[in-house]
Write a protein that binds this DNA or RNA. Structure first.
Lengths: 413, 413
DNA sequence: TATACTTAGTTTATTCGCTAGACAAACGAT
DNA sequence: ATCGTTTGTCTAGCGAATAAACTAAGTATA
């Protein structure tokens, strides 16, 4: 008896398997059909059948379900290619809306996007020296405003994503956000309770990486490294087309990668950390010791100041930027050797100094990186500007909604 | 007309999709059943149904097919747990054999394994200064001997895997093996033609990583970094349970990661590369400049010499090893911050100096690595000794055989 | 020893989703 | 006006999984 109970317990523990049956076949095929519609919209049923290899009848029935579920629309007939004119299908990007929040060290940027990631509304606010509760208030204000501004739609707000500058574990707890002075903060349940929709908390660099993959320069690539250079440096990893989080969600902490074993000690206890040489922190410090006149005291302004000076051709400013660029190159070189990515994207605040950083970075990589690793490699700056992270978390929310929408039995409204 | 042709071409290009139907359901479920048998052997049909969630009848029919295909066996009845005694099922690990080759800089190690990765026969040879054709001869000798020694089995030799100390792209071409002086070598077709079985060429570190994942310390983990420290340093990455190869198969070239921007120039053109500080190369160089008496000239012997000296308590030898250990720690610290792995395994030749390397490595990590990244993290040395890579490539071959065996229609003998 | 209860494995009927192929609708070309 | 083409729907049939009945072979208990 005891033996049996023990075994059943063991059996139960192992029962986390996905078993394959017709139901999952249907869900997968429906997902495939929807993906093709999103990707090639407008497209006909016949073409979907051609592309996917599914039978025409199967496509027809799946498409009809998707129409009932309000996820796609039929528009008028398309052009004939020698026979009956096809009925064109479109993804119904207005079936619902996602909220994406980039919660920065001294700002909150919020966007409302449709299901295709188009920004419909945008709200921003700045702050300094607020504690957790006060920031939460600001956050709720932004979200309230975005939700209020959302057009009427079948599904309404489908989810909220929040990117934060800190370490987030797999349970969406914020373990540490040094620059916000947060430790072990449970933001997700707080927001989820207030708004009653799924909430996703993600590290800012991870969110940015995903944003770039979905909407930016990385659309066609599967191995993308997003280097977020702000006050510190964080890295988001898209490997094999998926966000890689590591064992506990702490991957990409490359700001604390040693690039100089004999270098100065970092706050983290380690020596010669990359972010001591290539972050905004470094730029400001170098600027100060180079005696660059930087009008204000506030951080945000002074990165701007360096850029302004560089625009006028100030030698010292140019020198500081060149140095930072070279050091960025050092770390990126390491990243390339580790990951052999298709694409490295540099984003966040530093991107505004792009003009002066590109030459030293490229020069370093060309000289220092193994030739074969440079094959098929692109290095670029973010073209989503400041929106990478906000769009990324919004996309997470959207994706989760669509996934659950397709796999639920009770999917019809 | 032209328009249509153009479109059909486009359609064909996109038709690389896996379409979901009953057939794949069956293949997946059959794979699942076989996996559980391999994992929990001996196990009854009833327990498989319990673990997988599949229906008893489904399991019965899949099991019967597997028996016909010679992939599993029935043994006598097991212990009753209050009712009819179950018929126990076993994986038929002797249904075929794989050849695994570790092709080193100055040696070839070959193993013949059963389908469970147990080593049945082992052959080894050493050489120096041979060119490609001569090495190929040696290789064929080893493979011939292993195949000749293989017991009779239903499937015979199911595949050959070869691990090489160089850069291998996704098409199994060896682009560069600096220490063998190979460049753009097409080993796979040569071996495949001679033996008429599937051949897999893989980078030695990748192979080692996979070997450790399947048979070594990494069995229960999904994110494993295998650091192969020999003459140089190569790293194999198991991420999300799968080998990560990067865009072109060049991932893990971390021997050329900069850990000292102001350090000496490496052969590769970069500065302060990790392998200048922590490889066998470094050990020997340090030993020389420390005036360590090292009897012979040959590489292999002199690492041994340092170890022998360390055993006698020689202060200089201990100092050299301690230094190497610290530098190993520097690189591993970077790896941890990048990947947040469950497990870091240090393997290849350096593993024989394990005793003296463990303390400095652990000390460095404890002091320099962010606290949260140390959570759930294990660092250990290979316990497969010199077999990691050979077992890994053999396992690749085995896995490919089983996969094709399950998905083929004509699977019955 | 006889009976009831348990567990293992097989068999049968049913369900579900996909496919093939027939068919109708809509269009272009001659 | 007719023929061939393309789009989309409909129907029959098939393959695989499931549920549940059933057979087989044990244990537990009175």
């Amino acid at each position: 008896m005891l033996y049996y109970k023990k075994r059943m317990k063991e059996v139960k523990r192992l029962k986390a398997n996905k078993t394959w049956n017709q139901h999952v076949v249907k869900v997968e095929n429906k997902t495939l059909v929807l993906e093709k519609i999103i990707e090639h919209s407008p497209i006909s049923r016949a073409d979907i059948a051609g592309i996917t290899g599914l039978n025409k009848g199967t496509v027809s029935s799946l498409v009809n379900e998707l129409i009932i579920e309000n996820l796609i629309n039929e528009s008028g007939p398309g052009k004939s290619s020698g026979g009956r004119r096809p009925v064109m299908l479109h993804f119904n990007q207005l079936a619902g809306y996602s909220v994406g929040i980039d919660l920065g060290v001294n700002y909150i940027l919020g966007v409302l996007t449709d299901l295709n990631g188009n920004i419909c509304v945008e709200k921003q606010t700045g702050f300094t020296g607020l504690d957790y509760d006060e920031i939460l208030m600001e956050l709720f204000h932004i979200i309230d405003a975005l939700i209020a501004a959302a057009p009427k739609s079948p599904y309404g707000i489908v989810g909220i994503g929040i990117g934060v500058p800190g370490i987030v574990n797999k349970e969406n707890d914020i373990l540490l956000a040094p620059n916000l002075n947060w430790r072990n903060v449970h933001l997700k349940p707080a927001v989820e309770e207030k708004y009653g929709v799924p909430v996703i908390i993600e590290n800012e660099a991870n969110a940015g990486a995903y944003g770039e993959k979905k909407f930016g320069a990385g659309k066609t690539f599967d191995n993308i490294i997003y280097v977020s250079v702000g006050v510190g440096i964080g890295v988001g990893l898209i490997l094999n087309g998926k966000l890689y989080r590591g064992n506990n969600g702490f991957s990409g902490e490359l700001g604390h990668m040693t690039i100089d074993v004999n270098g100065p000690t970092c706050e983290c206890g380690n020596r010669g950390c990359w972010e001591l040489y290539a972050s905004e922190k470094f730029l400001l410090q170098e600027a100060r010791s180079a005696g660059l006149k930087n009008g204000e005291e506030e951080n945000n302004a002074s990165l701007q100041t360096i850029i302004e000076l560089a625009k006028t051709g100030d030698a010292k400013a140019l020198d500081v930027l060149d140095k930072a660029g070279r050091y960025l190159g050092v770390g990126i070189n390491n990243i390339i050797h580790a990951f052999n990515p298709d694409l490295v994207i540099i984003g966040n605040r530093i991107a505004s100094a792009k003009t002066w950083l590109i030459p030293p970075i490229h020069q370093w990589i060309e000289n220092q990186t193994l030739w074969f690793s440079q094959k098929d490699l692109k290095i670029s700056f973010s073209d989503l500007l400041a929106y990478s992270a906000a769009l990324g978390v919004a996309a997470f929310a959207t994706e989760q909604f669509i996934k659950s929408s397709l796999s639920d039995e009770a999917s019809a409204l």
